[in-house]
Nucleic acid binder design. Sequence first.
DNA 1: AACTTGACGGTCA
DNA 2: ATGACCGCCAAGT
Length: 111
Amino acid sequence: MSNDDFFHKVYAVARLIPQGRVTSYGAIARYLGAARSARMVGWAMNASHSQPEFIPAHRVVNRNGVLSGKNFFGGQNVMQELLENEGLIIEDDQIVNFKEKFWDPAKELPL
DNA sequence: AACTTGACGGTCA
DNA sequence: ATGACCGCCAAGT
């Protein structure tokens, strides 16, 4: 799998995350076969800014439901506001009821 | 070329 | 439950 393919797939999955739901970097990495580590998914998100299409990167958090990448959204509370606009509740940079809001591509997506 | 740094995650003490 | 450690791999220095 080439590097560009990996990026493309990460973006494709990210765009499939339903509004008001979230997933984790590791979940996406697993869905893609775990060929690449979760760090690479985060790295892809970092590059999602310069992507022509909009990537809902704010719906991707770490496995604890923490907004680990909020500093990459310009302001420090932009990511939180985006999520709250979708009906999610953030408390202390962490998603409340994360377990229920979690959306696992490997589980929710067709093969 | 070598070393450090992460939008991470699983394991173990 | 908390924290240290380690594997991961591209980028930056």
